[in-house]
């Protein structure tokens, strides 16, 4: 079954995700910048970028509420880095949340400034039996997750990948590597929910 997956195209690593999706069979990748485009997709990727900037545009163009409703109603969604922050129910040391749909508490810029950015090879059994390169760019992590959240990966005691039903969040950027396994995993998720 072919699925249409959107990449939120406000700002950030948008084309990187689209290029990855285009390498997978039975996937149509589309750019999402409007409420109309939101109605035509089976799943959505919230890319890395600056969460404050992305949230600002989402609100100004009234995309925010429609998106929130769609996700609550079951639209499969995957947030990478800034996208993870957009999904989180709580942001540490902040009264603000964005979409607030996923039961995790995240810390922004959790590894510090750009000098703290790093990459590491890790094996994540739920995703692939091969080690996957994980790229963290001024990345967040999750400090806490509710019981219904499935923890996919922990790095140095911090949650860096997790899933709550139809919602996937990663603190790192699979779209910046040559590895397709996370995109494959998300496509499978989208296919399951389309059935």
């Amino acid at each position: 079954m072919t699925v249409t997956i959107g990449v939120l195209g406000i700002q950030g690593a948008v084309t990187e995700h689209i290029k990855k999706l285009e390498q997978l069979p039975k996937v149509k990748a589309v750019l999402v910048k409007s409420i109309e485009a939101l109605q035509q997709i089976d799943g959505l990727i919230l890319p890395g970028g600056e969460s404050t900037a992305i949230a600002r545009i989402l609100q100004d163009f009234q995309i925010f509420e429609s998106l929130q409703k769609k996700i609550t109603a079951g639209l499969p969604v995957w947030g990478t880095c800034a996208g993870m922050i957009l999904l989180a129910k709580k942001i540490l040391d902040s009264d603000m949340t964005h979409l607030g749909v996923m039961h995790i508490t995240v810390k922004r810029n959790a590894y510090g400034r750009q000098l703290g950015s790093f990459s590491i090879l890790e094996t994540i059994p739920a995703i692939s039996d091969q080690p996957i390169p994980l790229v963290f760019i001024r990345a967040p992590f999750a400090l806490e997750a509710a019981d219904q959240v499935e923890i996919l990966h922990i790095l140095d005691g911090k949650i860096v990948a997790c899933r709550e039903q139809h919602m996937l969040a990663t603190a790192f950027h699979p779209e910046l590597t040559d590895d397709l396994s996370f995109h494959r995993y998300f496509v499978k998720m989208v296919q399951q929910y389309k059935l």
Binding site: I10, G12, V14, G48, G49, C81, Q114, S119, I137, L176
Partner: peptide, 18 residues
């Protein structure tokens, strides 16, 4: 090297922005 790639990656996160 890895650091250079990470540094190029940060610029990618700024794309489409001001």
């Amino acid at each position: 090297n890895e650091r250079y790639n990470l540094n190029k990656n940060l610029a990618q996160m700024l794309k489409g922005g001001v």
